[in-house]
Simulated assay, not measured.
Amino acid sequence: MRKSIKNIKNIYKSDLFKEFFENEKSSGLVLIGCTLISLILANSIFGEQYHHTWLTPIGGQSLEYWINDGLMAIFFLLIGLELEREIYLGELSNIKDALLPIFAAFGGMLVPAGLYLLFNYGDLTQRGAGVPMATDIAFALGVLSLLGNRVPLSLKVFLTALAVIDDLGAILVIAAFYTKTIFWTNLLSALAVLLVMFIMNRMKVHKLLPYLIGGAIMWYFMLNSGIHATITGVLLAFVIPFQHGEKTSISYKLQHFLHKPVGFFILPLFALANTAIVLGSNIGETLEQHYSIGIALGLIVGKPVGIALFSFIAVSLGLCKLPDDLSWKTIIGVGFLGGIGFTMSIFITLLAFDNPEIINNAKFVILLSSLVAGIIGFFLLKKTLKRNHNEKNN
């Protein structure tokens, strides 16, 4: 039995991880293209028409609303399935291996939030502390993939585990701090549906359709509970039978199926709908705002400092060790890639702020900061990996 589970772990690491990494890096490139298209259209003569396209009413709500509250729940479902895989079979299944990315992720969340609050504590904009805490998996892995074959597998795994834990942290932050009013009847109804699906799991109901129907019902109640409906996706992921993670499990099949729709339809659509940013004439004034400084410092400085510092503390305390093919410079480089916030940062921005001007400006600063962090991380890793490659050959 133990040997069987070990074989399944190897299959997961070789097959599904490779598929995940390949899809994420391709998705990252598509996201870049969609973001550029959205920015160009938003600032062209078609800008007003383009903006109003996303406000098209459907079922009493705008198209943008259904993308952010509906389709993004499917994105969170995929995150939940990936997190479950990591916990059972991936890098998080061994506590010794998991501690390095866990500590790195905590540092990458706490330090950026602290820097943001340093400039915004006591102001109305302090609710934006969660904005620089997030890492965009697709963009980060997309940049890492540009470095080619010199990137060691341990670095890919570290960044992936870090980003997945980071997303879990973002989900918890959304649930804890961006819920204004709770409607308990609807919340308890959603949890009752979750309980039914959990019982189905324990009774070994291994058909996907009942879970998808239950997930849709739970999403409806969660949508009307005051807690953001996308949390439904993560909860659903953990009641879908994982079994031993074999390819015949419905968890594996669903995760495999969702990679392409999420990476090449849902996230690009989210990017198109949420990066219609109008660039004002006074960009300098935008960058001088306290929330802008907090976001920029959080992503460009807080992320690499937090990731590297907490990793160093964990290794120094003997809780874990740095992989043999990694150095502290590569960890710092990955820390800068962690500063690519994009999807999750924009998502939290929409929850944190009500003022349209602040939302627009925050999105602009997120894009700019993510670009700067990504460029620094790319060139730092390129230089470090090239040096390591040359030293190894010599």
Score class of each variant (00 low, 15 high):
Ile32Met: 02
Thr248His: 14
Ala98Ser: 07
Val315Pro: 03
Tyr211Thr: 09
Leu89Phe: 12
Gly233Asp: 02
Phe336Tyr: 06
Leu187Thr: 14
Ala216Gly: 12
Met203Cys: 13
Pro241Ile: 07
Gly284Met: 10
Leu269Thr: 04
Asp136Ser: 12
Ile250Cys: 07
Phe177Arg: 09
Pro112Arg: 11
Ile58Gly: 01
Leu195Gln: 09
Gly298Ser: 08
Asp123His: 06
Gly114His: 11
Glu22Tyr: 12
Gln126Val: 05
Leu100Thr: 13
Phe242Leu: 10
Val157His: 05
Val196Phe: 11
Phe75Cys: 00
Phe336Trp: 10
Leu371Ser: 07
Ile283Gln: 15
Ile277Lys: 07
Val196Pro: 06
Leu63Glu: 00
Asp167Gly: 09
Leu385Met: 06
Glu48Ala: 11
Thr179Val: 07
Ala276Ser: 14
Gly114Ala: 01
Ile5Asn: 09
Asn388Phe: 04
Met197Thr: 06
Val305Leu: 15
Val301Lys: 06
Gly80Lys: 14
Gln61His: 14
Glu48His: 12
Phe353Gly: 03
Gly215His: 03
Asn361Asp: 03
Leu39Lys: 07
Gly374Trp: 08
Ile67Trp: 13
Lys392Pro: 03
Ile95Ala: 07
Asn361Val: 04
Ala129Arg: 09
Ile37Thr: 09
Gly374Lys: 10
Thr53Cys: 01
Ser249Asp: 07
Leu41Trp: 06
Asn388Ser: 12
Ile295His: 09
Gly245Thr: 04
Ile174Asn: 07
Lys253Met: 01
Thr135Cys: 08
Tyr121Trp: 04
Pro356Ala: 01
Gln126Phe: 02
Gly47His: 12
Tyr12Asn: 14
Pro356Ile: 06
Leu115Glu: 08
His389Gly: 04
Lys260Ser: 15
Asn274Leu: 10
His256Gly: 01
Tyr220Asp: 14
Ser145Asp: 10
Phe119Arg: 06
Leu337Pro: 01
